[in-house]
Design a protein around this nucleic acid. Sequence first.
DNA 1: TCCAACCAATAGAGCGCTCTAACGCAGGAC
DNA 2: GTCCTGCGTTAGAGCGCTCTATTGGTTGGA
Lengths: 332, 332
Amino acid sequence: MGRPTMEDVAARAGVSRALVSLVMRGSPKVSEQRRQAVLLAAEELGYSPHAMARSLASATSTVLGAMVSDLHNAFFAEVVEGLEAAASAEGFDLILNTGGRSPSRERRAVDSLLSFRPAGIALLGPVVPASTIASAAAQAPTVLVSRASRLSTVDTVNDDGEAGSGLAVDHLVQLGHRAIAHLDGGNGSQSSLRRKGYVAAMQRNGLQPLVIASEYTDTAGAKAIRALLERGEPLPTAIVAANDFNAVGAISALEDTGLRVPDDVSVVGYDNTSLAALRHVSLTTVDQPRNEMGRLAAEALLERVRGQRSEAMHRWLHPSLVVRATTSPPSR
Amino acid sequence: MGRPTMEDVAARAGVSRALVSLVMRGSPKVSEQRRQAVLLAAEELGYSPHAMARSLASATSTVLGAMVSDLHNAFFAEVVEGLEAAASAEGFDLILNTGGRSPSRERRAVDSLLSFRPAGIALLGPVVPASTIASAAAQAPTVLVSRASRLSTVDTVNDDGEAGSGLAVDHLVQLGHRAIAHLDGGNGSQSSLRRKGYVAAMQRNGLQPLVIASEYTDTAGAKAIRALLERGEPLPTAIVAANDFNAVGAISALEDTGLRVPDDVSVVGYDNTSLAALRHVSLTTVDQPRNEMGRLAAEALLERVRGQRSEAMHRWLHPSLVVRATTSPPSR
DNA sequence: TCCAACCAATAGAGCGCTCTAACGCAGGAC
DNA sequence: GTCCTGCGTTAGAGCGCTCTATTGGTTGGA
């Protein structure tokens, strides 16, 4: 009864527990003969090492933890892929957790991760206060993804939202647009950067910025368009939306009033979610290198774990534009 | 240096380590005075219990593990919410893992979860062979979600896909449709149940079934529609799609040929993903009680953990229809 | 007054593993 | 023959906690 332990394997193979431990960790200082005997015994007993006992004894963990603020957002799914790939390539296991975009739940989630004493943790799009992040960073190397921080103890990996909006504006300007509005992401993560980038790009092109308050949802996007229509001013010929959801909401509100996208109004999204790629939507949008962000986050943690670096690292990745069917030269 | 241990807290509070242990586990047999002293000391030191040492010592884990086959699928995100809620209500922590819909990666993911010796594990939409599931079930109570199994050692929680397709067909028949086609989900999970339900409902209504091969993606949905058009036969007035993605692909292919949804053709999806709820899409679809599925999965595990049940439990949940804007009476 | 009963608190073993130090044994140098 | 070196192997302590058994102190009933 009970799962077999290292002791059981040792007894069966006729060696000591320590030798089994060496074999399990792939040590070179074991004779081939003994190694085979141990592996055979382990196989026969269906033995697999007890990760918790191991990390308790070694005081060094081979586990990385990641708190995903929002599992519904496919954005993070791809960041996780990148994390996973980089972690497992270095022999680390990744365990996940979710915080549901609620500060208190995220806090508990982070505590729960830390209770496993992981080698490091990644927080993906966390909404917790900086103090919570600081106290987590005091317990294990910590990296933030999609969240900036000036803390000297945490690393960050972000998309350069300012540059991303700039790409969108430049693309539209190149198509011949001059009246380009921006739907602002409100208090969504990174939204102020995106707004800043939009305003800067407009000014750089000698154009007048027009920012409409909105949020990171499709209903908010639709509402913003209706608000824009009610102004009675001539409608812009192009829209730089806060993100993809926001863009899709804007598109449907435009179409509701008989306007056609992109014939009457061009629309650019942000994030290049799977939604944008659907042929029914086919949204021109700004792509963040999500997979790469995950990979860099994992590498940042591993560098800290190995003591190769102790100052904070802040990476800003360059987004790129994905041109699809919702942008075209203005008809007017 | 290093994180504070129970011993540190005990020393600071002037009590024994065992007493601190009792306080941490909320035992009633501790005087209020000592309890306060211990809590204060723990607070001051920033102590939090070491989950792995705890489970090692107690041989009983308060951790549930879940392997999510596909993080990109928002379906599982909501199942996880349900799992999480039920688990934390009972004092269990949930850790996640992902297998990327690859049998070998999923196998490793399951092994990794088991190495934490969790009280039980949930496999969400796994694609591993039954033998892998059986060997996991031998190590910890196991429940499958969105995957059927006849193994007597595992519990399952599934949506009744047969009933779901029936709901879709009945809804369309009630609107007056008689020529209703089904886009089949191919080897996607549960697709054969959905097809079976469709065929049965058609026959029950005295109608001729028409099944078109397809898959669970939007491009496959579009392709299936094009295949249907090339047949040269009169087009059905309604489509029961394999799932929401498939439906959206079908809709865009229909619109590409100048047909209007729902005026010319009604379309019903399956899964009620967030995509279906977008106003731009507004898809009539079949909803699975995802949250409830997660909750039931957690409860199934906890019953096993507590030894309240040892025979397998197989739950089939009733889906419901969500009527939106892609279905209407036929024009012809 | 005494002992049983109860309660808060503790000592100490042990969960399954890793790691340090030490061991025995081979081979080579002196 | 002795000493050293190097290598494969092992004993044993200890990681941070839980749990059983036990202690000492109070209480209440006979």
